[in-house]
Design a protein around this nucleic acid. Structure first.
Lengths: 226, 226, 226, 226
DNA sequence: TATGAATGAGGATTCATTCAT
DNA sequence: CATGAATGAATCCTCATTCAT
């Protein structure tokens, strides 16, 4: 997930066909098959070892079928990102937004993401590979800042409103806290991937506690020291 | 830094020549030059776009010089990891260990890492690229669990002793907290890389506060709810 | 135009349907549309960069429409040549043949071609691309000698009759002069294509003068020298 | 030769190594071998059918040897152009410049080119293929105007000085005459390529006569008519 | 008539590595 | 110690063509 998971933003485009022309049933099926195959390959072999040839091989189709359905490797990866994004957003957002307080929303959000992870390990692994590695010809990251900002801003808003409501202490920077939450979630995922028997749910709850303690009003002893 | 930053472990090997035969002065100079050039290339272009040809070009030497001094791309990356590791450990560990309480040690640790980051951005970027991408021929991660465990164990020990000393609340899983800290640090680095004007020191202090609140004894209101 | 422009020969086939079976209206419309699109593509992108895909794209139709209406790329290019040829002949021949003397006929011919050029730049560019580049599978030129000879023969006849009539000096080889005229016309076209503001009409008149001087009776001073 | 043969300009760079770093003997030998093989392939199969694979095959070497010695297909073609140019210039220029009068210089020039042709058919065929077809990624001709102008200018100067000296009639546009001469030479080459038994020397002499008549002072009968 | 889908062959290029010098 | 030369495998991509619908 790579610290740049942006399910908030993705919400917007989930229902629009994003500029693509109407596609036939068989077209969509093939595209889905290829995307799935690509996701599996990215997840298993890593970005650098994922070639279109290997994706085709896994899908049991000819290399050029991919070229026929996608303009190139770039479009394929973009489609993967788009799809995974809207998928996450559709799952996480409703579960987050129904909560009344900021504290509860934060906990619900962390839990929802963890729940999603369990069912979409491969998808998220692939997304991470793409985010970390996809670059333009000039060497710049293809999925850069633009993809991170909306998530940070959404969480920032959550923390800010919690601070204004008096739920959260005012000393922390909402942006920093936002980055920390995202990082902790990413870290949880990476840890679970490494140790598949790890209890994801318990981890998520611990994380929720952690950030509840970290954000709630009250002064830690150490704060005066520095 | 990729969530698998293992400066604790590296400590062990920092003084031992790690199995390499004694090398001449010129040999070492060349190796250092190549490693530096490779680090720069990994950091700037990313793992997939870093070829030995590009490393050689940047170093102003012939491709085969690299082949002469390193068994292959694999050995080169291993050497980079080894070097960066011992470098980090040498900086961070003393600053962490001199603290008396667990709370202070945690804060010192976070601060030390942040301080190190500022002076070694490129190094750490390269390390991250390698960790995230270097794979064996079969597709398995080359720098996997073995490299992460020691860090987690070291931090776990820190939290456990803090809990036993009554400094930290007992409800959290030391391993989870350990993973969270590491993730937050990694996230801080990634954020700073994206926004170079970001105040790293302030971020580190916020992080220290965050985990102080998260670990100190005391019950958040929400904890009863779940 | 490529030095092999054969409007004389084409005359013959302009009214015969050249072996094609009677086609429906819609069939002819499609073929015309595709040919036009192909001409534009050849002219703009050059032979090597003109693929059926690009032609189809420009025409706003599917690739396979082309395959349906033409046996292959080869037939398409042949059709283009055939069409452009009969088009040129229809324009140039009447304007040439109505002249009484060889001298006037030559001038009229050059002028007519230049006039045609102005209105059919793209057509002629495409023709040149095809002539210069279309080859059989074995690498032989597809539009070779057979397409050049009739032009040379026609012009040769013009020069020969001029010589017999005493209009032209007898020292030059009619075939060489014929080739030179064709080359000069081709060169005029190429020059105008490069410099679109070039005065085509003035160029044509200069060319007519040039060949009038070159062919009329009388001995240049230098001729004795060699 | 494609109407863009620029041996005048090439003169300038014939002795300078044109920015390439000093190359070893074996390097130069390989490059020469590859260039020769490429020239043969271009000449025989045409531009579109000349792939690096075929060039390598003809040279009896591996494809990647070409990639090793040349940055790409583009550099290879550029090197061919550069070499053929300087070769032509070295042959034609001295033979042209030693003549005292413009009339004689023109004749000498035409003869020299024809003489060169006989010994370098393949070279010139390849050059023509490249000139007519090599394009940039955007579809623009790679060897465009810049390569034609110097030739035209040089010949233009010759005609102009002949006009000022009273050798040539003043009515013709030196630029048009210059283009015509170049076209006639190109046409002669193309004709000879098609009919290898054609008498090149006689053709050249006829051409020299032709342009002597065309340029010398005196008024053709027809000129008043238009 | 028309076309969406598929495909194998071939295109240029990059790569890590080997080897002789 | 250094490197120029070479190479085969693998990269993505484009192509003309075929076929079932």
């Amino acid at each position: 997930m790579s610290g740049r998971l942006c399910y908030f933003q993705a919400m917007r485009s989930e229902n629009s066909p994003s500029g693509r022309k109407r596609a036939s049933f068989i077209e969509e099926a093939r595209r889905a098959q290829i995307i799935e195959s690509a996701i599996d390959t990215f997840a298993e072999l890593g970005y650098a070892n994922t070639s279109l040839a290997r994706v085709a091989e896994r899908a049991g189709i000819s290399k050029s079928v991919i070229s026929y359905h996608f303009a190139g490797k770039t479009e394929l990866t973009e489609q993967i990102v788009e799809q995974v994004y809207s998928d996450i957003a559709q799952f996480v957002l409703p579960r987050t937004e129904k909560e009344a307080t900021s504290t509860r929303a934060l906990r619900a959000n962390i839990r929802a993401v963890a729940e999603y992870m369990r069912g979409h390990r491969t998808q998220l692994l692939a997304l991470g590979e793409i985010f970390n590695n996809s670059r333009t010809a000039e060497g710049k990251r293809r999925f850069g800042v633009a993809y991170s900002e909306p998530v940070y801003e959404a969480r920032e808003a959550l923390f800010r409103s919690g601070q204004q409501a008096g739920e959260f202490r005012r000393e922390f920077d909402p942006r920093v806290m936002s980055v920390a939450v995202q990082s902790a979630i990413d870290g949880m995922f990476a840890y679970w991937v490494t140790y598949p028997d790890h209890d994801l749910e318990a981890h998520a709850d611990d994380l929720a506690d952690l950030f509840e303690h970290a954000t709630r009003t009250g002064h830690p002893r150490g704060e005066a020291d520095r």
